[in-house]
């Protein structure tokens, strides 16, 4: 750990372990700034943060980067492995490159911005977080998503929104196929307002009117009251 620029703590994974870094991050005061060098695909970087600090990671990370994040602002200048921002509660995570599968899985809150493409199952079981993908989103994006919003500025892969509950999905490009019980829905004023705010927060120049909205048709058996006793 060294102090490079004023008030920025710098860690290099060539000389410290992930556990040492995370332990230090957990003890920092609100407003602190940290930079992490040479991640080289390491897993579990900047996980479980609970205070509003700023973390910049220079390079490609492994699994679960920024997992369970609360309040912190995390920037990854590179690609991320499986499960970036998994179970995020609040705060912001931005990835300049691509994200592997299950980006933002079951996130309850906060904003996850992916500068490039996402692999399969982005936003799986989303529970209230917002995800903006500036590139393409892979197969089964929004699988089982319950609440929150997924914005895809490029194309979406096969099975978009399969078994969706109440999450909203906006796609600007083409959709390879819709998943079970996912349908295109009317884009009303409230949706254009919500989408404009998310695009602005993510720094996207795209126009909200160029997007289509997708959501649940609410036709799967668990939406029917006669099946209530099954649960």
């Amino acid at each position: 750990m060294t102090a490079s620029a004023p008030d920025i703590l710098t860690f290099d994974l060539g000389s410290v372990t992930v556990r040492e870094i995370n332990r230090t991050l957990h003890g920092l005061a609100a407003g602190s700034s940290v930079e992490i060098l040479s991640p080289d695909g390491a897993h579990n970087l900047a996980c479980g943060l609970t205070v509003p600090i700023s973390v910049r990671i220079e390079g490609h990370t492994g699994y679960y980067c920024g997992g369970m994040n609360e309040e912190a602002d995390i920037l990854v200048n590179g690609h991320t492995g499986t499960g970036v921002g998994e179970n995020m509660m609040s705060g912001r995570i931005e990835v300049t490159g691509n994200a592997s599968q299950c980006a933002g899985a079951s996130a309850h809150g906060g904003l996850l911005v992916i500068g490039g493409d996402t692999s399969s199952r982005c936003g799986i079981s989303l529970k209230g977080g917002d995800i903006v993908v500036k590139g393409k989103a892979g197969a089964m994006t929004g699988f089982l998503a319950q609440k929150g919003t997924i914005v895809v500025c490029g194309d979406a892969g096969e099975g978009l929104g399969d078994s969706l509950y109440e999450a909203r999905i906006y796609v600007k490009g083409t959709v390879a196929s819709l998943g079970t019980d996912c349908i295109e829905k009317e884009m009303r004023e409230e949706h254009l307002i919500q989408l404009a705010a998310l695009l602005k927060a993510a720094g996207c120049p795209d126009k909200p009117t160029d997007f289509r909205r997708y959501g649940s048709a609410r036709q799967l058996y668990h939406f029917h009251v006669e099946h209530a006793a099954s649960y």
Partner: peptide
């Protein structure tokens, strides 16, 4: 299987 293997 993971980028870690390729990083160097």
């Amino acid at each position: 299987s993971e980028y870690r293997s390729l990083a160097d």
